[in-house]
């Protein structure tokens, strides 16, 4: 069954004012349990607005959102429960840290769920390990940590609620290449370990191509496509026409095709490219 489903979801900012803007336009989609989805689209394409509908932070101007088959906004009192089910990590989540210690900050979500102290403690230890935070850091103030560590604390704060779906808006933005890599690998490991649904919004095609099973492309508020990663990057020229970039390696292969060397598969990750070329040359890996 689809864990997230939308029907003709439309959201209009500032309805009835001169500044009216259709941020999300008639989007219908289904996301299955256990998938890892990449969300791409350029600035202002409605990605962030869309994901804020999945945990009931925004109310659709028209259309419906179903989480686990339950229609959102039918009963406003249920929204809080939905937010525990669909964990949302905003862009630059480290700016939301507020507690004296990292431990207490991660505990904020689970505490709001009404869990017992011992259960909270188990979850914090577990998520801290998952995001790669050393246990001695837990007693430190989040404001003493480095940027990358702060971000881990913030992500752990949402993970500790053990949401069925974890949505992250640009989880790796503003970090150095090594930090990006670590965060994304950590998310992939989390996905494998918990078998939960993970959605990553990103500008970086490389990151999305490497980790996602399926890719959701937004263009000017409308759903452009939601398809398997290879199928999406097969339309590299269309993506580029939309002003989106495609992974560098895909561009290299597009150029090769122009030059008369065509491969029958679409290539979007470097390891796969290496394998394809070696196969062509008749050598094994």
């Amino acid at each position: 069954m689809a864990v997230i489903k939308t029907e003709n979801l439309t959201y209009i900012y500032g309805e009835g004012t001169p500044f009216e803007k259709r941020a999300v336009d008639n989007v219908s989609l289904e996301i299955n349990e256990g998938e890892m989805i990449g969300v791409i689209g350029h600035t202002g394409s409605g990605k962030s607005t869309l994901i804020q509908h999945f945990n009931g932070l925004l109310k659709p101007s028209s259309g419906n959102v179903y989480i686990d088959g339950e229609r959102l906004w039918e009963d406003k009192a249920r929204l809080r429960q939905i937010r525990f089910k669909v964990g949302l990590v905003f862009q630059y989540p480290e700016y939301q840290l507020f507690e004296e210690t990292c431990y207490k900050d991660i505990a904020f979500g689970p505490k709001n769920m009404g869990l017992t102290e011992s259960e909270i403690d188990i979850r914090i230890k577990e998520t801290a390990e998952m995001v790669g935070l050393k246990s001695e850091l837990l007693e430190k103030s989040p404001f003493e940590l480095s940027g990358g560590q702060k971000r881990r604390v913030a992500i752990a704060g949402v993970m500790a609620m053990r949401p069925k779906v974890l949505i992250l808006d640009e989880p790796a933005s503003g970090l150095d290449p090594k930090g990006r890599e670590q965060i994304l690998t950590m998310l992939k490991d989390y996905h494998t370990a918990t078998k939960s649904t993970v959605m990553i919004v990103s500008h970086s095609m490389e990151d999305v191509a490497r980790y996602a099973d399926r890719i959701l492309v937004m263009n000017r508020g409308a759903l452009y496509c939601l398809d398997d990663t290879e199928k999406v990057f097969a339309k590299a020229d269309e993506l580029m026409a939309m002003g989106l970039s495609v992974p560098q390696i895909t561009r290299v292969f597009a150029r090769l095709k122009e030059m008369g060397v065509s491969f029958n598969k679409d290539v979007y990750t470097t390891p796969y490219a290496v394998k394809t070329i070696l196969e062509r040359l008749g050598k094994s890996v």
Partner: peptide, 26 residues
């Protein structure tokens, strides 16, 4: 920030005055 804390289940709309004032800390 409000959206981010709400996403973690912060409840700012219900409860006594004292509880709501405390909910402003995050």
């Amino acid at each position: 920030i409000m959206s981010a804390q709400k996403a973690r289940g912060a409840d700012m709309e219900t409860g006594s005055l004292m509880k709501r004032a405390k909910a402003l800390i995050p």
